[in-house]
Design a protein around this nucleic acid. Structure first.
Lengths: 280, 280
DNA sequence: CATGATGAGATCGTATATTATTTCGTACAC
DNA sequence: GTGTACGAAATAATATACGATCTCATCATG
């Protein structure tokens, strides 16, 4: 399962190469057309050339790629399985809508799987991995001055990738990848960036790194990573409420507590939901 | 995303209906052929008519269903995305192999998402839901005498379904569904049933229900549910080691700790990894 | 003016046909 | 006898073609 997706995700750069070199066998070397279509569409979704709601018409995309509709259709169904596009029978596909609730559940899911992956990955991290992560976090801190949201987001992913990349459970690692892919697709939302959150984020990164270096308890680390993500989500929701007070996300909440790690405690600073073994 | 899968999962019974009524429009009413093929194949994987390693040949299945290969192919790719089948380019698909490691990572993943889903679902459970769950657990206890692994497994899913069905995060709920689907596919393994584990399982169910009734802390509940599943996994692995001592699953372990909730504490009974707020 | 029917265009769903790839058996050379 | 090259059969990958379904605009009707 993850095999396919991961493999496909790496083909992006081959898209342009194949596109117009219609003649040679070199084009068809390696990647299948459905893989090509997959990379082509995903790339466009993630960099917002296809923004949420954009209709993905089989024939059009097939024409652009110089292939038939069959592989394009397959690519779209795969993207649907990943949640990047929505699909309706006999109607067609469109890029998944970026409503706040979607962002909320995606971040919540990511907090869960990424938290676990980070904790499970930690014991396998070499000290040089920690150093690498710290270096990235330094660049994050530095970028706070001449603040560039795009660069920040990218560095942020790089940082966390180092933390969870040694996760020994491939299923969960795959879920983490998918979560980040969805976030990239929803970037609009992410970029209604919460002012000030970036600085806190860097500080929390440092704290997580400390936990890893001390070989802290796995649950403690899991919840530190989980809460780090949930804090970003909460900041976003709070910012959302402040900005659009009327149509606030007050409908049916997605989670019982304010967002939340199930304990519901994390959003009150100082009463971290983590186990607090150290405080004694 | 979950829309498709969930919808498709309910079509199973329509398979037989459509199969030979080749004539009428009534057949094609509603379900698409790819949906049909999806249900047809999944049904056979889950009831082990297609056992692990079975080769899924497009033309053969298409012939059995009286459709062309195109929808069959699509169904297989979807099943691949769910991890039920393995796929190789230009070679074909086969039912995913049921090695112990696959079982291990699947159970681990399920422990994570089901634990969260259970905790998040609890606040939305009506007292009648709890009563329903307790009734199912009573039947589980009863079934311990004239022990039937198939019936037990089914009741076990029913029980847990009641616990997590109100989970407000559809993504995570979908992941739970997929986890259980994979387990069904791996049933061989599951049925190298660990003697004695069933009784413990029933007792743990009762404890979880108590936590829910007392509106216990969400983290405590999450870890109770998580550890419940991990305990089953550990029992299986221990049993595995005892049965096949030589080729024991000692290669590269999938998880740092004995299996485990990241804390690594759950396997030592009495030092439950949960927060233990109540113990004070 | 509102509302429902009707038809054209767009797009999807699937069947059929063609091409490409792999696999496996067989014959030939060493 | 063993290994390698070749070729045929099986199967997947894709293209093309056609039928099915939806959408939307237009028009008739109350």
């Amino acid at each position: 399962m993850e095999g396919t997706v991961r493999e496909m995700a790496t083909v992006s750069s081959a898209v342009a190469a194949v596109r117009d070199s219609r003649d040679s066998a070199a084009a068809s070397a390696g990647v299948s057309k459905s893989t090509l279509a997959y990379a082509y569409i995903k790339e466009r979704i993630e960099d917002s050339r296809y923004s949420p709601g954009y209709r993905l018409v089989l024939g059009t995309i097939a024409g652009e790629l110089g292939v038939s509709v069959v592989p394009v259709r397959e690519a779209i169904r795969l993207l649907e399985a990943e949640g990047l596009v929505q699909f309706e029978r006999n109607v067609g596909a469109q890029v998944a809508m970026a409503d706040p609730r979607e962002y909320e559940v995606t971040m919540q899911t990511l907090s869960l799987v990424e938290g676990w992956a980070t904790a499970a990955s930690a014991p396998f991290m070499a000290s040089e991995d920690v150093a690498r992560a710290r270096a990235i976090n330094d660049r994050l801190a530095e970028s706070l001055h001449h603040f560039d949201p795009v660069a920040f987001t990218r560095l942020n992913l790089d940082f966390h990738s180092v933390l969870f990349e040694h996760c020994p459970n491939p299923h969960i690692l795959d879920l983490v990848d998918r979560g980040w892919a969805r976030l990239r697709a929803l970037r609009e939302s992410t970029f209604s960036f919460v002012p000030g959150r970036a600085k806190e984020s860097v500080a929390e990164h440092a704290r997580i790194l400390d936990l890893i270096e001390r070989s802290a308890d796995a649950v403690e680390l899991e919840f530190a990573a989980r809460n780090h993500r949930l804090a970003t989500l909460d900041a976003f929701l709070a910012h959302e409420r402040a900005t659009h007070p009327a149509k606030a996300v007050s409908g049916r909440r997605v989670s019982p507590a304010p967002t939340a790690v199930p304990s519901g405690g994390h959003s009150r600073p100082g009463s971290k939901t983590t186990v607090d073994k150290e405080s004694a």
